[in-house]
Design a protein around this nucleic acid. Sequence first.
DNA 1: GCGAGTGATCGAATCGATTCGACCGGAAGG
DNA 2: CCTTCCGGTCGAATCGATTCGATCACTCGC
Lengths: 336, 336
Amino acid sequence: MSTASLAFSGAGPIAAATRQRVLDAAQALGYAGPNPLGRQLRRGRSGIVGVIVGDALRRAFRDPVSIQVLDGITSTLGPMGLGVLLIAGPHDPTDPPVDPLVELAAMDVAVMMWGGTTDDPVLSALRRRGIPTVLVEGSRHPDISVIGIADRAGIADVTRQLLGLGHTCIATVTLPFTNDRSEGLVDAARLDALEWELTRRRLDGVFDAGVQPVAIWETPASLVEHGASAARALLAGPDRPTAVVCQSDLLAAGVVLGARELGLQVPQDVSVVGFDGLDLPWFKPDVLTSVAQPLAEKGRAVGREVARLLEGEPPQSLDLPVELVWGTTAGPAPTV
Amino acid sequence: MSTASLAFSGAGPIAAATRQRVLDAAQALGYAGPNPLGRQLRRGRSGIVGVIVGDALRRAFRDPVSIQVLDGITSTLGPMGLGVLLIAGPHDPTDPPVDPLVELAAMDVAVMMWGGTTDDPVLSALRRRGIPTVLVEGSRHPDISVIGIADRAGIADVTRQLLGLGHTCIATVTLPFTNDRSEGLVDAARLDALEWELTRRRLDGVFDAGVQPVAIWETPASLVEHGASAARALLAGPDRPTAVVCQSDLLAAGVVLGARELGLQVPQDVSVVGFDGLDLPWFKPDVLTSVAQPLAEKGRAVGREVARLLEGEPPQSLDLPVELVWGTTAGPAPTV
DNA sequence: GCGAGTGATCGAATCGATTCGACCGGAAGG
DNA sequence: CCTTCCGGTCGAATCGATTCGATCACTCGC
């Protein structure tokens, strides 16, 4: 048995002739190679990285941001012989708050693809199981790796640019506040109920610039259609904002489309800025003014951190820079 | 040990008090519950379904078609306690033809998300390992489950409609022919080199309608930008086709955008039909004329077939119907 | 009061590979 | 010629849970 093991794994000394004899015998007996389950048990490693996406898979995959990060992750993990197990994140409040896979599946490391909330049930489940975890865009935990970006400062920066262009009446369109996916204007009570770290941070970016938005509009997901309905609600009235800061590019693109539906010109009548720096082929020849984040690099950084954790090294957090991309959707405030 | 096992699994008779005692002891000892690896080895089941996407993950995830099918798959598999392991399909010819995960990873069933070629190395690797496999949109294999759609008939149908509207000069824009991702006009030699089952079948649909396309344009992937470049190439000349049949909606949308860039009106100057029946929010208010396939249902059918195979039942193939959706991008041929 | 029956608990084999140490034969060196 | 060393092979323990059958305590019925 041990010789057969060596023949297949190639680790350790084995004569070429013996190896061949083993391989031939395997062929004759219809043995298709070592059973991964046995190997995994013995090694104590499954070779699997659980990636918990921030939503039902359907929605998560419609978001180019998740996709690009996921691609960066897999392209780093693949060559290391690690596989990615997809796990759905929290979505419908009717579902159990934690996917059974989080409790039951074999994985060496977990990646949470969204910031999560302050005390996330998924995160606690992972900690209970003792599975090292990498958070994408979460808040700093002392003993957990967090791969983030300078989104707060980036949003503050682009907001200041708008101020410099004479905008005084600025609205903001945000990502979801909680898992319950409501849509609409945010009042003080709702603002207190804000649970998602990421949404809060980007909102704080606007405040950091010294802006008190004339309206905060919450969307149930980062999708074009929700941006469009935000535009219909925010830009229809007579004293509409002259600029809209959006927490994602998809929302911003939706706001632009919605504004045009209302007969408004972008950026002459209203300026729209987004976040992410996506390349949207169907948006051409326009280019969103946006805060670009290095999405694929973020994924690769996650992959590298996963590798570090597997080596047994202590968690290490990392913040990636963002870059302001000045496109065609923002300009000076209209003169009254 | 056996009692502890019963306490955690809940299968078999155990007194509530004993159970609680075991759970308390586990807590005290810092035991976080059964190790999945041990359970999997014993059960002989990993609870994992390997899903091989038809491309590098990045490209596959930009394709709403894969996404929706994948979503259907996961939503069926999740409640059955099965996890989805993502595996990249064949992409750059420089990479190894078969992802190492296909050879090494533990999985109970595999799903190939694209038709593949007649003798696919991935498929043979899976058969060698004895892993039951479900093919999405492949060609009929005797002992393999194939979940397909009536795409050939659907394309033939929509092509006949175009004939009925007076179109005689019809071009077609296709999905890739092989893994080498070339782009451009297809000549006889290239037509012979066609390896992808799915592309061939949809092309045959056009032929079935009795149409000999004036041009066949191969794209390297189902993306809007490739449709746009096809349009630039096919529609620039004076004797351009009056209708373009595309093998996907993303390509069709790209053709429409490209045609407009050239100053053409759709459908007045040129009719464009697609395939898939996607809902593209950014394409509104236009609606693609398309052959709609039930994407989520296809995914669910895959999930059900996976379940069947796990039960040990013999492979069973299934063909889902398609439906012609008459949108705003196709109309009568222009009068000369 | 004793045997049958029942429900809970425990022993031990098993899944399949890995890996350390023991062992063996042959070659090189003294 | 004997010892030492070394590359190659083989035995056996181990990873962690599941599960069948055996055992045990206890109750019920006669």
